[in-house]
Design a protein around this nucleic acid. Structure first.
Lengths: 344, 344
DNA sequence: ACTTAGCACTCTCATGGCGAGAGTGCTAAC
DNA sequence: GTTAGCACTCTCGCCATGAGAGTGCTAAGT
């Protein structure tokens, strides 16, 4: 809304101001802005405009005799209206492609960890990744593998070729024969179902069956939840937290501690990534919009990625003073890359 | 060696000094020490003794007019000679037992993460755990589970009931029949071998076989390394790093950053836990003995735990100024608890 | 010979004053 | 509508100051 009220000069000044502030981390005054305009415009004029911008809540002064810094709202209009889409340079694209190349077709967990790592090292921010949510996946096959006495490994494969496993404790007297029968039944009846529906539909689907071992079926159904998400925040990977140390906004011990603490809790971050606006693709969450206690000074640039029916999220977390245009491009490229790599 | 040269009074003073310093984090002067001795001994006398201790390199003064603080060597003699073994209080034992109870017999990864978490929250330090090293494990069974076209999940179970899985990419035309035959062969020939020997012995063991699919065998052998350790530092879990924020020694931005950075690299920590002295059981590594760049001010109390033939490590990492006696007791109890829980 | 009181000395740390520098807002001129 | 000029405000680094803490040494006491 604020944006419509902005005239050309105000937009221009806001943009240049933010650009400058992002790269220096210092409040920017009218003098330096005047210099950055090749078009002649005196500091005094710029001061007037800055006053207007301040009244609109887009910038503010840390104290009377300092320059201006953007507010959350300022960043918001900047991101939504003032930056133009950017493509990432070729060498960076190449680097991402190489580092994310899955020579050894590794486990999903490894890929997610690696992605977080790359994001962090490429951006010098915090890289976060959320593994694909299994619940939308369509079951293609189920295997019950006895790994030791009383222990059964359940392997559920979904259509895109991803698989997840859960270890079960079973009654001692489940013999190979009944395991095999149960497995066949599970496959016959549940293949084609989505994993998320397992818990509700599986009991009905298997109700009138009399071949499968009912105890095995029972523990299998109970395990369905672990399939969707194993452990609290298990599917979250975070890397590059130590990059915060080079950011001047986290020179303050308090601020730094708050962020690290909330990251360590994991669940808040998982929720943030899950509920980050309804947007399908890229979403930028700025400052207080990131509703995490302790991370008020942070922004998140995130994107969903899709592998067949299942979907995950990757993101970059850092101080609100970040290079949004560049990070948007990186996140976009990486999300596509990740989906592409995992598809095949 | 230094210890033999210490007389009773020196030992006594060193012990009380460290005890006091550990709880206050402030250099301790002759005055307060005099008060802590119920036995009358004047500050001046204590000063003399402190000078001796300083000459021996066991304590030092941060600056001329400050009290004394222990050196790494001081902590060393303290830990080796001055503390008496401690048993943990009942309520703490109970808490550990409850939080570590494996109701849902979960995956090893979850257990390790949970253990690190408990250690951290119980001690307010950093909890670190290293999953059991698979290489010493004796293979009890091998399963090859097709999860999708061209993708094969290898499940290797070892004698204690632990299992690990690796996902393999295989040639498109490996049919169910040849997978089954290969699986049977692998079991026949490799059961009873240790996982660590797989890479060297497996080729010989399988050389004269003509039933198993040689391509499957080949990728299986190549996957052996991933079985022992999947990904760099995958088996390491760290929790409670944000506890460092409440420690006065890490009020300094530099110091804090150094530690967090080295933790984030993971491999140095893994090596530390692997090579922490030849000791089988509990080991205390103090200050500079922890050969990590950036973690010079840290100590590690660690213990191995054993599940059948395989062995892992758990530990507590924190500033050298830590409650060694208490942490030793906690680590000891937790290591036993963990082994006990995972055995069954 | 060991212990202790007394004392001068040193170093840290918190405090407050001071001046330079930066950037503003306002007014008056263009 | 724009700009030069100027008084004003606030931060920040610097320095001096003084209280406080703890030491080492010397000389006296047991």
């Amino acid at each position: 809304m604020g944006f419509d009220q902005l005239n050309d000069r105000e937009r221009q000044i806001l943009k240049v101001l933010i650009d400058h502030y992002v790269s220096t981390a210092e409040p920017v005054g009218s003098r330096v802005l005047a210099n950055k305009f090749s078009i002649g415009l005196s500091p005094a004029t710029i001061r007037n405009t800055m006053q207007d911008l301040e009244e609109m809540g887009l910038i503010r002064q840390p104290h009377t005799s300092a320059g201006r810094v953007p507010t959350d709202d300022g960043y918001r209009t900047y991101v939504d209206n003032l930056i133009e889409p950017q493509t990432i340079p070729n060498d960076l694209a190449k680097r991402l492609r190489e580092e994310l190349a899955l020579e050894h077709k590794r486990a999903v967990e490894d890929i997610m960890a690696q992605t977080a790592h790359i994001l962090a090292s490429v951006t010098s921010q915090i890289g976060v990744t959320l593994a694909p949510r299994f619940d939308k996946g369509i079951i293609s096959r189920i295997e019950l593998v006895p790994v030791a006495e009383r222990r059964l490994l359940v392997v559920v494969g979904i259509q895109t070729g991803l698989a997840r496993t859960v270890l079960l404790e079973v009654a001692a007297d489940a013999d190979e024969r009944s395991i095999e029968v149960t497995q066949r039944t599970l496959n016959e009846r549940l293949a084609g179902q989505s994993v998320g529906n397992l818990r509700t539909t599986a009991p009905q689907m298997l109700k009138d069956d009399n071949r499968a071992d009912p105890r095995l079926v029972k523990v299998f159904i109970e395990a369905a939840e672990d399939l969707i998400e194993s452990g609290p925040g298990e599917s979250l990977h975070v890397d590059g937290t130590s990059n915060l140390f080079s950011q001047p906004e986290f020179a303050d011990h308090q601020a730094l501690g708050g962020v690290l603490r909330v990251i360590e809790k994991r669940t808040p971050i998982v929720n943030l990534l899950r509920n980050r606006g309804a947007g399908e693709g890229i979403v930028v969450t700025i400052g207080r919009e990131v509703k995490l206690e302790g991370a008020e000074g942070c922004s998140l640039v995130s994107s969903a990625y899709k592998i067949g029916q299942v979907e995950g999220t990757i993101g970059i977390l850092g101080p609100t003073r970040m290079e949004y245009a560049k990070l948007l491009a990186i996140i976009d490229y990486t999300a596509r890359l990740l989906a592409e790599q995992m598809e095949k």
